[in-house]
Structures are given as C-alpha cells and as structure tokens.
C-alpha cells in the first residue's frame, strides 16, 4: 500500500523539504548583501557620477573590467531573486488556492526568468561596438 500523502482533513502530510528554509535564509543574506551593494551602486552612479555623464561610453569603460561585470551580475541575481521570492510569498499568502493563483504564480515565474536570463545575457555577452 502506498504511503498516504494527506491527513483525513485533506491537509498534506509534511515531509523533509528544505526549499522554504533556503528561501528564508536567502532572503536574509541577500537583503544584507544588497544593502551594501545597492548603496555602492547608488554612490557610484548618482553621487560620484552625475546621471547626465552616464552614457554608452561610460558603460563600455566600466564593463571593460571583469570586476564591475561580476558586481552588476551579482546584484542582478540577488535583487531579482530577492524581489521574486518576496512576491512569491505575497501571492502565497494573499491568494486562495485555485486557477487565479496558479496563473499569477506562473506569470511571476515566467516574468522573473525572462528578466534574469535577459539581464545575464547582456552582462555576459556584452561587447563594445
């Protein structure tokens, strides 16, 4: 006889699934790291340099060194996943199970994946003209 997966009430029987643990830890660590990275980003882009001096040439210069590519890459991944996980939690908390929830969750996953792949693609393959 297969193991039952639900209690009598229909509540799923829990099993050792570390996903939510990792998501929880990730939120805290990425939050702290992002705090410093985002402040660094803000200082460089808006305080040291003015936004009207930032142009294509500026980006070319900046991304000539792998350090800034890696910096921006890490920030992209952390910020996107942090925001994605926050939204996932909100959808999970506020939407009742059903089609509406499935669709919203699907859209969230799809949108986040597109942004992540698109951003990573630019950072990795960027070559100055």
């Amino acid at each position: 006889m297969p193991e039952p997966t639900h209690y009598k009430s229909g509540r799923p029987i829990p099993y050792d699934n570390p996903f939510e643990l990792f998501a929880w830890v990730f939120m805290r660590i990425s939050g702290i790291v992002l705090l410093f990275m985002a402040i660094g980003h803000l200082v460089i882009m808006h305080l040291i340099n003015s936004i009207d001096t930032i142009n294509y040439q500026f980006v070319v210069q900046r991304w000539a060194t792998p350090f800034w590519r890696i910096y921006d890459g890490i920030m992209l991944f952390l910020a996107l996943l942090h925001g994605f996980n926050g939204l996932r939690t909100i959808l999970d908390d506020y939407l009742r199970p059903g089609m509406w929830k499935k669709w919203c969750t699907f859209l969230l996953y799809a949108f986040s994946l597109i942004l992540l792949v698109g951003g990573a693609w630019v950072i990795i393959t960027f070559k100055p003209k």
């Binding site: 829990p14 699934n17 929880w24």
Partner: peptide, 14 residues
C-alpha cells in the same frame, strides 16, 4: 523538525 521544516510548517510564520 522534518515535519516543521516543510512549507506548511514554521516557514509560514511571518
């Protein structure tokens, strides 16, 4: 801990 580590366990606590 196995039981409480699942998504309907302690991680639901906000």
């Amino acid at each position: 801990l196995d039981i409480l580590g699942d998504r309907e366990g302690v991680w639901r606590c906000r």
